[in-house]
């Protein structure tokens, strides 16, 4: 079973995403900010990360840059999931090493389509 770390400061978003990804047969871990997520990744790299942009303590883009510098940090497939929908944010995310990008609001079809696009389902 593949693992997915859901990183979002909204408990509601984490709950919705968990439901969708559990239906796609992922084992779920959760983090409420980038720092917490980075520590979890250092302990054990997940197969996938669903990543919010704007969070307290450490935001999504800083987390992603730090993750990609970690030993084994190139391995997780990172899918941004954010309300930031302008091209400059998308381009910045791709440059930092994001594999796909979901623009909120999302639904199960979009998550499945994006995870399928990067070979996770």
């Amino acid at each position: 079973m593949k693992t997915c770390l859901i990183v979002d400061d909204s408990r509601l978003i984490r709950r919705v995403a968990r439901g969708i990804l559990e239906d796609l047969q992922f084992q779920i871990r959760e983090a409420g900010n980038g720092q917490d997520a980075l520590e979890q990744c250092r302990a054990e790299m997940p197969d996938a990360v669903l990543l919010d942009w704007n969070m307290p303590v450490m935001n999504g883009i800083d987390f992603l840059r730090a993750l990609r510098q970690e030993p084994g940090g190139q391995a997780p497939t990172v899918v941004f999931c954010t309300t930031e929908c302008d091209m400059s944010h998308i381009t910045e995310a791709l440059s930092a090493g994001a594999n796909e990008y979901v623009m909120k609001p999302f639904d199960g079809d979009i998550i499945e389509a994006k995870f399928s696009e990067v070979g996770l389902v």
Binding site: M87, V102, A113
Partner: peptide, 13 residues
Amino acid sequence: FEVQRGLPITHLV
């Protein structure tokens, strides 16, 4: 919604 169904993000950019 439409650009997120089947379109890779790199193609969107």
